[in-house]
Nucleic acid binder design. Sequence first.
RNA 1: CGGAGUGUGGUGUAACGGCUAACAUGCUCGCUUUGGGAGCGAGUGACUCCGGGUUCGAAUCCCGGCACUCCGACCA
Length: 433
Amino acid sequence: MRQSSLFTKTRKEAPKDEVSKNASLLIRGGFVHKEAAGVYSFLPLGLRVLEKISNIIREEMDAIGGQEILMSSLQDKNIWETTNRWDDSVVDVWFKTTLKSGAVMGLGFTHEEPLTRLMTNHINSYKDLPVYPYQIQNKFRNEVRAKSGVMRGREFIMKDLYSFSRTNEEHNEFYEKSKIAYMNVFDRVGLGGTTYITFASGGVFAKYSHEFQTISDAGEDIIYVDEDKKIAINEEVYTDKVISDLGLSKESLIEKKSIEVGNIFSLGTKFSEPLGLNYVDEDGKTKPVVMGSYGLGPTRVMGTIVESLSDEKGIVWPKSVSPFDVHIIDLGNKNEEVKKHAEEVYQELKSKGVSVLLDDRNTGAGEKFADSDLIGIPTRIVISEKTMQAGNVEVKYRSSGETVMISEREYIDGLVAEPANNLSAINRNKLAG
RNA sequence: CGGAGUGUGGUGUAACGGCUAACAUGCUCGCUUUGGGAGCGAGUGACUCCGGGUUCGAAUCCCGGCACUCCGACCA
């Protein structure tokens, strides 16, 4: 894409009412637009990042048997009354709205109820199980206090997968697989090193639920991390008993602030029983389906990446989620030869399947560099009189700041487009096993 | 929901109760410049969040509302 035609502009200063680092940088870079507290629109650059994150999640969910669907946001109140989750005194984050007829509907904050009911149309026999539908969809939560930029919004995007299994054993098997899939996601988006599987309160059907917590000062949660075992305990269940149950010792646990980027729950038959989601087993008996739910928010992941990986100059996107692979800086404003050449390199890279943002604007070099740092594309290529005369390109890596002069031909020929699906072999094997 | 704070051109700021609401940035035009937000000049752009009140006079003081931010509580 040509930057001259990109309708968003960067800003030197963030609006004064944006304090959080993620919103400040995302707004300055032109990734998002704030509509209201906790409500953000995604602009071209931001949407590209969001789609990349979502696609990574899709690949990992599909790899463990997920089937993507898209459910409605408007929710039928009757079904939520069945499980006693309609009343505002029980669930205080509902947005509710009234139809012309006078009927009241809700805007979904999660989807256990409607999906469970939906699945009664499709699950009858043990032969129909297990099954793992998921969606990536806008969720609405009427938070009393939105905060931290895109991290805690009133409208946000969430991937929610629900598992439907015959037995607890079958459920547990999938539950363990989902942990691997989740860690794959966080690895791939660049948060692997700082994200921990965290034990949290489980509810009626399981001793624990599991959260995926990324260490960050911008976080709202407190967890206790065991660095060696790569697991953590949420403050809410941090007791001597839990520590010893998990085979950990207090001495090796370090208190950290963290961001909850995902969580998975065993639901047992909490929803299948009241909503009548049963199946006939091999023995001819009717049994309730065993369920689990698995949440992961692409918008929050995006915010967490910004919080974790940005520096004083701007964002530093990992390649896997960057809006573009390469940022070409064309310094040939007054030199048609240079301009033309930058255009040629742009076209050639595009033809190789490399996604490129070409800064062809007629502005000063300093502004181009500053914007490039802010936008945070991992690889920057500078094309100028200097580089052209030498037959070189200057390649600068956003994360390290390292600059190399390299033969242009050699560099272009060496570039290979990212494969659409780049699950690592290691992760593949883990899943196969 | 408790507490605190803030609302002034697109953005960031200034203005004792008193002249035509100032400065920077952005944007437009011209010239200059071209490897780190460069320069000069000319323009453009604000019913000072909304509604009342006090006053000869309100961006400024008072009341009400709305919005936003922060701290806390909350976060199936």
